[in-house]
Design a protein around this nucleic acid. Structure first.
Lengths: 361, 361
DNA sequence: GTGAAAGCGCTAACAT
DNA sequence: ATGTTAGCGCTTTCAC
């Protein structure tokens, strides 16, 4: 017995008023239309008694506002993206939006399809953590009038508002830990090469090296994905090429995990034979055999900032969820790259643990 | 320039046909209505050229089908729930649905609000991992004609289709590892006491104990939440009450992590002074100082099964995403509790690692 | 202060 | 083989 839903008409009839009056009474427009308090109360009561719920669908059609925000991430089950999705969900909720979730399974084709589908569902904005370098579809969507905000996996030439961590600074700090300990032969486990995070992190490392008077040879860079698998493979390669390696700089935590597995297999102990530093933490990291020294991204802030940028593009006041959700907060820097699109960055935190020692060779 | 969206009417005009013909041509009903292939092709072409995207909102209003599934979990950033959300997202996508995500922040009041909101958005079904014991709002929703499926945090008297792991069996197996090693003084870190998973897991432990000829005294049970915090607190309490404790049975992984912290603080080493077993794994658990012996829930299967149950309640064929998505698959048992609602269970896997030793006392 | 009516974009009888 | 029309449930202009 699917119990058909009660409509505004039902309420109006039962309250003995017209639908227009009912609508106005329930939308807080009583004052504006000078509806008598008596009528208003009456309508409200009936609506309550009947358990009336205005159909958002009908409302959307009329208002041309769906109250929906699309979120597309490569893998919801990855805690990093899950946290982003969560922050967005919580953040936009306060403004009356709901999140339509899409999982691109790390495939650009799916990402593309999802973007189209979500657009058909009338989402009012799209927040995307892109899979790869190809982002034309996103730019198209944005140009077609649906605001897109890109988070994390940003690409250089992209003409969309972007939110990322301050990767340059983070990489430099992380590299300095290694360098100050005396390391010079540092292997790099790269994420997707063309992605801005990967490029920037490499640059940060290079900067730090240069400042210390040496350079990172390209042969010390391996890997091409933000995955454990890639980290493992890359480490094996690097160990092959440079058995005298004394440290590893991993561009994400999974890669570092892969590295540790590879190192262990090859008979290296961490940090004695080889130090390891990485981006991103993981819960209970301190209970690991070798707790990693890491640059921690402030994921929830990343998510909040992204939400704010999004809401602002919709012409709304970010409703101050979280402590300092203000995009213009002091520690958040808006950077204008050569493109005219906004780039927002949030600071990271360095967490020094036991995975770095002096080089033994 | 918000570039107003192209409507069916636009397409029809441009193609020189009526909206109905256009609609039919684009909905694959050309045959059914015997529309000439020429016309169909023409309409399709125009639609393509104009980049026509049928408004799902208008469609929903007319069809009274939104193509939306609501998913409510206590915390999307928790990998367990994130994985569930992901499976649902992937699973229903194949049937043309999208997922509207809600995060209840572990609060029943929010869960309730979300359920209402999602209902207003015309979701066609609701999948919920409930926060707590109070589920009347969900039962109400279900009774009002919106099918609800409950996953994981199930409560005994609930009259809704439920999907969980086979907790009884899993707990028994886990307990047996401890018991066979010789443990008798086993502390229990409970999750939310009134939840069925907690009750069932405790029962499994008790069953195993009984079979071995001893009993679990209530004073050996502590904690009341599926969190690290609760696990930590509970462990401190247990250690206080029973310093001669030789093993800990944690009802979730975070609780076990809390336990390890507490044990370490109190000068116990794992597993020498105290063994630990737990429910749920966590990635790279093998790289921990003391890799835990755990009962692993097949989360993705849990999610898939839930999706199937949901789709079936909607009268749809679960579209065989995943290998054996069939709810009636041999290893998945439908259990009829005293209530007349369906209970579905999926098997778990025992992973023996290094956190169990013989009792030293 | 309140009502009648138009219309958002689409689908499905019911014509023809 | 295609067009006409009546809504789906809501908001809002315009009229009284």
């Amino acid at each position: 017995m699917p119990a058909k839903p009660v409509t505004l008409k039902n309420v109006a009839e039962r309250a003995g008023v017209s639908v227009s009056t009912a609508s106005r009474a329930l939308n807080g427009q009583a004052r504006k239309y000078r509806i008598s308090p008596t009528t208003e109360k009456a309508v409200r009561k009936v609506a309550d008694d009947l358990g009336f719920q205005a159909s958002q669908v009908a409302r959307s059609l009329r208002l041309k506002r769906s109250g929906l925000i699309g979120v597309i991430v490569p893998d919801v089950s990855n805690p990093f993206f899950a946290s982003i999705a969560r922050q967005v969900s919580l953040g936009v909720e306060a403004s009356g939006f709901s999140v339509l979730l899409g999982d691109s399974r790390e495939e650009t084709a799916i990402e593309q399809r999802l973007a189209r589908q979500l657009r058909a569902k009338q989402v009012e904005a799209l927040l995307v953590c892109p899979v790869g370098v190809r982002c034309d579809h996103l730019i198209d969507v944005d140009r077609s009038g649906l605001p897109v905000v890109v988070v994390d996996r940003v690409f250089e030439e992209i003409e969309l508002p972007c939110v990322t961590s301050d990767n340059l600074r983070a990489a430099r700090e992380l590299a300095e830990v290694l360098i100050h300990a005396g390391h010079r032969k540092i292997g790099v486990l790269s994420g997707v090469r063309e992605s801005l995070p990967a490029k920037t992190r490499l640059q940060g490392l290079k900067d730090a090296a240069e400042q210390a008077g040496f350079a990172i040879d390209p042969s010390y860079v391996a890997g091409d994905a933000f995955t454990e698998q890639s980290g493992y493979q890359a480490t094996r390669e690097l160990l092959d090429r440079h058995p005298d390696l004394t440290a590893i700089f991993a561009m994400c935590n999974p890669a570092a995990i892969g590295a540790i597995r590879a190192l262990t297999e090859c008979g290296y102990t961490v940090p004695h034979d080889c130090s390891v530093v990485a981006f991103d933490d993981h819960p209970s990291a301190d209970l690991m055999k070798t707790p990693l020294t890491v640059a921690v991204q402030d994921i929830s802030r990343l998510g909040r900032l992204a939400t704010d940028v999004l809401l602002r593009r919709l012409g709304l006041q970010p409703s101050g969820h979280g402590v300092d959700a203000t995009a213009s907060s002091s520690s958040v820097r808006a950077v204008n790259a050569r493109s005219n699109s906004d780039r927002w960055q949030v600071p990271t935190t360095l967490l020094e643990r036991a995975s770095v020692a002096e080089p033994c060779r």
